[in-house]
Amino acid sequence: MLAFLPYGIVARFGVGLGSLLYRIPSSRRRVVHTNLRLCFPDMSEVERERLARAHFRHVIRSFVERGTQWFGNAKSLERLVEVESAIDLSQTHTQPTIFVGFHFVGIEAGCMMYSTRHPVASLYTPMSNAMFDAMALRQRGRFGTEMIPRSNSVRHALRVLRAGKPVMLAADMDFGLRDSVFVPFFGVEACTLTSVSRLAKAGNARVVPFVTEVLPDYRGYRLKIFEALSDFPSEDAAVDARRITAFLETQVRRIPDQYYWVHKRFKHRPEGEPAVY
């Protein structure tokens, strides 16, 4: 139903619903405040409260806009998302390419729009609800995106890269200690996947960061694709993880209310350190 409504109405409804839901005490609201307190200790309580409220509006709005993103046609998505790219996207098949994204609230819109124009594969984490997972998988792949489950990602992704199709993935969430290292995120040790570095090395691929940001005044989104990281990967996966995390920090400082603070980024802690949630 939401896919057939004008985008401005859907977006404004999402903002209003987010404002309403923020007023209700919840575990996710506590997670947001914990993350902001850890990452921005010098920020006043008033500033963190303002940031948390703005972020909640963005998050709920992004969920509401899934109607447009999952069920809207290609033309509506192309009108919704403008693209700013530092590389020639028509040539990604000539060199193995990994697009590394980050969990800003607009990531879904950017990835969906990209798939309407260019062949691509995408790593995803299956959802616990089988019916919702099947719908998400079907709608995310309806423009031809090859969806790769994270549990079977390495071999499949390598085959895709070698066949000349770029792979999109995001490695900025806490998926557990396996194949991860602890690196500082805003000065706090965060369990961080090393998959980008390992896959790039195995596939001899360049790594190209991208961020999708929400534009002001309900003008949609901007998918910003950066230059490939130079001299990447290195011989040290931990160094590579720190480098990607430092890049992410720069982008978070630019649009802090749009990063996914509702995620338990510090769920796993270094040995001997107490839980924070």
Rank of each mutant, 00 (worst) to 15 (best):
V81T: 09
V81P: 02
V83C: 09
V83G: 10
V83H: 12
V83S: 06
V83D: 05
E84Y: 03
E84H: 10
S85Y: 03
S85A: 14
S85T: 08
A86R: 07
A86S: 13
I87M: 14
I87T: 08
D88S: 12
D88H: 07
L89G: 09
L89A: 13
L89M: 15
L89E: 11
L89S: 10
Q91P: 05
Q91I: 10
Q91S: 15
Q91T: 13
Q91F: 08
T92G: 04
H93L: 06
H93T: 09
H93P: 02
H93M: 08
H93E: 05
T94Y: 11
Q95V: 09
Q95K: 15
P96F: 02
P96Y: 07
T97D: 07
T97L: 15
T97Y: 06
I98K: 03
I98C: 02
F99M: 10
F99L: 15
G101M: 04
G101Q: 02
F102Q: 13
F102L: 14
F102C: 11
H103P: 12
F104V: 08
F104K: 05
F104M: 12
V105F: 03
V105Q: 06
V105M: 06
V105D: 05
G106D: 07
G106C: 09
G106H: 03
G106V: 03
I107D: 00
I107V: 06
I107L: 15
I107A: 10
E108A: 00
E108M: 01
E108Q: 05
A109N: 04
G110M: 00
G110P: 01
M112G: 00
M112Y: 00
M112K: 02
M113G: 00
M113D: 04
Y114G: 00
Y114I: 00
Y114A: 00
Y114W: 12
S115A: 15
S115R: 03
R117P: 13
R117M: 15
R117T: 13
H118I: 09
H118D: 01
H118S: 02
P119Y: 13
P119V: 14
V120G: 05
V120S: 03
V120T: 11
V120D: 01
A121E: 01
A121V: 01
S122Y: 01
S122I: 05
L123D: 09
L123E: 11
T125G: 03
T125H: 13
T125K: 10
P126G: 09
P126I: 12
M127T: 03
M127Y: 05
S128I: 04
N129C: 07
N129I: 03
A130E: 06
A130Y: 07
M131S: 10
M131E: 14
M131N: 03
F132C: 00
F132V: 10
F132Y: 14
D133I: 00
D133L: 01
D133G: 01
D133M: 01
D133V: 00
A134E: 12
A134Y: 03
M135C: 04
M135K: 08
A136H: 12
A136F: 14
L137E: 12
L137C: 12
L137P: 02
R138T: 10
R138K: 15
Q139T: 13
R140W: 02
R140H: 08
G141W: 12
G141C: 08
R142N: 08
R142S: 13
F143L: 15
F143P: 07
G144C: 08
G144A: 08
G144V: 08
G144M: 05
G144F: 14
T145P: 01
E146M: 08
E146P: 01
E146T: 07
M147G: 09
M147T: 09
I148R: 05
I148H: 14
I148L: 12
